[in-house]
């Protein structure tokens, strides 16, 4: 059983007259990437702010590495690093000078460590430029450097891919996975994009309208979204003929849409079934262009369904 390093229990928070967070509870473990998923206005940022002590809480407990934020703030903060909302640093200082600021506020950080994190986030060559000259993505990277500077046990990043280019997103994913899986850090990433979560998270906690809907491993999430079946889309020379060619395979269901064939395959032995479908279409001398798993789209749909927000009003 991995160590629980972030524990949130029955967190409630009211801002102004609005009750924003309702009994939020979840645990995050050392060595995992935990996705914190929810639509706009769900309360992700608010929860994160509570976790790092930026805002007070009405009730509940939050402990980081065994220390409660509201009781031992300094002890808890020594073990957490993070970015909340936009990565805003001192614009009149360089990235390195900014990191030196944070180094003086944390314990035991050497010059070498600063060089190291600058290299990790890929800013080593531009470290002595003022932040005011940085692009949004570069600022995001500097923010990540700030967050991992003191090798925290828990790393909390609020929408860290904001502003990053595709290569940057991939790099960040790799950095975070490395930190979690190789160095045992508990990485918590918030996002409103399911697709992003899939690519890096081990577990996903879903929040909507200030309530936790559940915490799932990635597999659980996929299974739940597909139920018993996986769905494939087949593009070939003649969909009608292909449908006939595979009609004898048991358990599958095929429908014709446009010129394509959509097939639902039972999860049990899906791989064998699909290779059989492949073979039979090819044997029927129908040109086969591609076979696509439709789970991605379905997962996104499942998320929208779960959070009850189909592009509707923000709750």
């Amino acid at each position: 059983m991995p160590e629980t390093v972030l524990k949130i229990e029955n967190l409630n928070k009211t801002l102004g007259k609005r009750h924003i967070l309702h009994d939020i509870s979840f645990d995050a473990y050392a060595g995992e990437v935990f996705g914190f998923l929810g639509p706009n206005g769900a309360g992700k940022t608010t929860t994160i702010k509570c976790a790092v002590g930026l805002i007070s809480i009405d009730s509940g407990t939050i402990s980081i590495g065994g220390r409660e934020v509201s009781e031992d703030f300094e002890g808890a903060m020594a073990q957490v690093g993070g970015i909340v909302e936009n990565p805003e640093m001192y614009k009149f200082l360089t990235a390195r000078q900014n990191l030196e600021q944070y180094a003086r506020m944390r314990d035991g950080i050497t010059k070498e460590r600063i060089d190291e994190v600058l290299k990790i986030v890929g800013l080593a060559n531009r470290a002595d430029e003022k932040i005011s000259k940085y692009s949004l993505g570069m600022r995001q990277r500097a923010g990540v450097a700030q967050a991992i500077l003191h090798k925290p046990k828990v790393l909390i990043l609020d929408e860290p891919t904001n502003g990053l280019d595709p290569a940057g997103i991939k790099e960040l994913r790799d950095i975070l996975k490395h930190l979690a899986h190789e160095e045992g850090v508990c990485v918590i990433v918030s996002s409103h994009l399911m697709s992003e979560m899939e690519l890096m998270c081990d577990r996903v906690g879903i929040i909507a309208q200030g309530k936790m809907l559940g915490v799932y491993t990635l597999e659980e999430l996929m299974n739940s979204s597909n139920g018993e079946n996986e769905r494939y889309l087949i593009r070939c020379g003649d969909a009608q003929k292909a449908m006939e060619a595979i009609a004898d395979i048991e358990g599958i269901e095929s429908t014709l849409s446009d010129d394509q064939l959509e097939i639902s395959v039972p999860i049990e032995g899906a791989k064998e079934t699909i290779s059989r479908i492949n073979r039979q279409i090819v044997l029927a001398e129908i040109p086969l262009y591609e076979v696509n798993l439709l789970e991605k789209k379905k997962l996104e749909e499942a998320f929208i369904e779960m959070t009850g927000n189909g592009g509707d009003q923000i709750g």
């Binding site: 790092v52 002590g53 930026l54 703030f73 300094e74 002890g75 808890a76 903060m77 020594a78 957490v80 690093g81 993070g82 909340v84 909302e85 936009n86 990565p87 805003e88 640093m89 001192y90 614009k91 944070y102 506020m105 944390r106 314990d107 923010g143 700030q146």
Partner: peptide
């Protein structure tokens, strides 16, 4: 006003 307060307060200093 510069938004830097969040990075200032996220440190282990009360």
């Amino acid at each position: 006003s510069n938004g830097t307060i969040k990075f200032l307060l996220i440190n282990p200093r009360s």
